[in-house]
Design a protein around this nucleic acid. Structure first.
Lengths: 190, 190
DNA sequence: CCTACCGATCGGTAGG
DNA sequence: CCTACCGATCGGTAGG
């Protein structure tokens, strides 16, 4: 086991703890115990507590962004684009549940500089989704609703799946995806 | 100005700070400065930092619950019930933005006992909304989707309005409510 | 409502 | 990777 692997274990365990208690309420001593070393030893693998948070937040931000870029230039309908974005994001949220939870809540605890960068990236992918919705409204595919309301209704519904979804029980990841697309595109009403 | 008023000011300012930085990352000294007294003086009005968090979380939980109880027994369609619940929750989220933000995120920092109580209350109103959705599916008003997916898509979309909604700009609280009901009940697609 | 202060805990470093 | 430890900051109290 080289250093790289141990580092990944530390960040993975950190994401679990941060999700459960929040970044500021989680201590390096607690993390060390979970990993199985003394607190001082963590610093052979990571530079600081802040660095762990940065790594988690930007990992999530970049996956979000690239999953939108992958769809953006395709020659498909706005409806199909939104469907694929929902699908990709649900994939992310269900496979990286801890990371998404931390990024959603604890980005506030990033340093001023990193926080601004994070907000910029997030704004970037929000604007790309907004543009898709806008075009769909113009072409008559979508209802004439406020673009921000449509954007954030979509994003909120997806982002917070990690808070309640347990994939083993009476519902699978596939069913989740199918039903969320149905609800967001066609609504609850029959 | 009696003690009650000052106490309310403290809790109001606390909600602002907790929303911006999270409960654990917010200090009593910072809160004191915002209120305009020394840190020690806060304790003439509140018992502890924890007490402030409890007050905020349970205030929100009880408003949520009562807004559902107000609708639950009415002799109206499931669609109409869901519409009214969306409407009431958006009302709460837009008027108590800071409190809702804190309750959504920092309930994790409640003491074990209070946290369990909070989760119980929250589960209570989630189950009532789930029952309404279930009935709507049975009567054929709603599509045959997984009840949990429908429930949490609805709740997530509403709960996180506080994260992006600024009521003064290009969109009013009324437009927000109208469009969210449209999207959640009838979907984005025309 | 303030001054003065306490014990606990924090992130992190030195040195081996 | 550990022992030993530091300075800073925390929530909160005593006493007036």
């Amino acid at each position: 086991m080289g250093k790289i692997n141990k580092r990944e274990i530390i960040i993975e365990e950190a994401a679990k703890i941060f999700k459960a208690k929040g970044f500021a309420a989680s201590s390096m001593r607690e993390l060390a115990e979970q990993v199985g070393v003394e607190a001082a030893s963590l610093y052979n693998h990571i530079r600081s507590k802040d660095e762990i948070l940065e790594e988690i937040c930007f990992k999530v931000a970049h996956i979000y962004m690239s999953s939108i870029l992958a769809v953006d230039d395709l020659e498909i309908s706005s409806t199909e684009k939104i469907k694929r974005i929902i699908s990709a994001h649900i994939q992310l949220v269900t496979t990286h549940s801890n990371d998404v939870a931390v990024a959603n809540v604890d980005w506030k605890n990033l340093s001023e500089t990193k926080k601004n960068l994070y907000k910029e990236i997030r704004k970037g992918y929000e604007q790309r989704i907004a543009a898709i919705i806008k075009k769909g409204i113009e072409t008559g595919e979508f209802k004439d609703v406020n673009v921000s309301v449509a954007l954030f209704t979509l994003l909120s519904a997806i982002r917070w799946v990690e808070q309640w979804f347990k994939p083993n029980r009476s519902i699978s990841a596939e069913e989740l995806e199918k039903d969320m697309i149905t609800l967001l595109i066609n609504g609850l009403k029959k």
